[in-house]
Amino acid sequence: MQIDYQYLKEKTSEAGFHKGYIEYIRFSENVKDFYTDGHWKNIDTDLLALEGLIIKYGEIYSNEFRKLLAQEISSYLSIYLTGGNEPKPLMEEKEEFYQFLHNNPNSIFYGAVEEAIKDWEANEWQYTSQDYPNYNRIEVMLDPRFQNVGYSDIYDLNKWPFIDNTTEVYKEYASSFDRAVLQGLSPIELTSLYIYSYQKKDKAVFTSINSEYTIKNSEKMDWWDIKDKSNLVAVQYPTKESATIYFLGWHEDIQIIATMDMVKVNGVWKISGIE
């Protein structure tokens, strides 16, 4: 079925839709169909064009439209990161992926490409059944509430503790309370350590991770319930010295289940608020 894009643009404009929607129609008009006359190596151009639309018009797009964009981006990335969705060794394709990272260090898709590359490298560039990318993470990235949250700032909450080094860090820190153990830990690692120690009822550990600020309602938080309701954890950096951790679940739209604020004090991230 042939789409009359000119007619569609005119009717969209007449209906009073924002220019951002018309620009998306213009993008769709010019993009090539990968399955008929495209090549997977050109998909990065389409992804970067979509990124430009998101940066320019993301805040005016509706939730429903952002979901459609997330689906489209996920589809493009899936084709791109598997070298055309063909189950084959990717030795010849790997330079394309490395080049993307080199050319686009600030792209919102950098983390997705980097994560896929790490998996391919671990498997000696042999095709695996791993799905790329995670659609929900893409949807979070497109939500205006989570500005500057990249793909690598979003973590699956499919295990507990949800960060691999938490158990080892806990054992080392609980035995010594040496602040040097906490040096270099990221906000997400501190979050995982806090919840892990909280659920072990190790008050000495989890209170030492708090900052001098009052932790509102922290004693009332049911972290098992929060975990059960959450699918992802996202980290946002308002400044270099502050971070916000979002526990996110889905009920038609993205729901913020719990929020944890953090500040950096003498080189160590500490919790300053929970709600």
Rank of each mutant, 00 (worst) to 15 (best):
Y110P: 00
A234L: 00
D4H: 04
P144W: 02
S192Y: 00
Y198C: 03
V149A: 04
S107Q: 01
S107L: 01
Y76P: 04
A204P: 06
K67R: 12
Y35S: 15
P89G: 10
S218W: 05
K32H: 14
G273N: 14
D178E: 07
E92L: 13
E59Y: 07
Y237P: 00
F97Y: 15
Y237E: 01
N210D: 11
G249E: 11
K216A: 05
S242P: 00
T214Y: 11
L185R: 06
I195F: 00
Y80L: 09
A15G: 03
S129I: 11
K67W: 12
L77Y: 02
Y21R: 05
E241F: 05
E93M: 09
S13Q: 07
I138E: 00
S152K: 04
A116V: 06
K270Q: 15
P238V: 02
A204Q: 11
W223R: 02
G58F: 01
F27W: 14
G273P: 04
L90I: 10
I3Y: 06
L68A: 14
R179P: 04
V233K: 00
V113I: 11
A15I: 03
Q6H: 09
Q147Y: 13
G111H: 01
G16E: 00
Q6N: 14
F97T: 03
K171G: 06
A234S: 02
L190K: 03
L53E: 09
V181A: 06
W120R: 10
H18T: 08
A243Y: 00
G184Q: 08
V113G: 02
V140A: 02
V235M: 00
N123Q: 11
G16M: 03
S218V: 08
E72Q: 14
E93I: 07
K216L: 10
E96I: 14
F162Y: 07
L193Q: 00
E23K: 13
L50P: 02
S192D: 01
N30M: 13
S75D: 10
T45K: 15
K171Q: 11
K67F: 11
K11Y: 08
G20D: 06
F146K: 03
L182K: 03
E121C: 09
N104C: 02
W125R: 10
F206I: 08
N148Y: 13
Y213C: 07
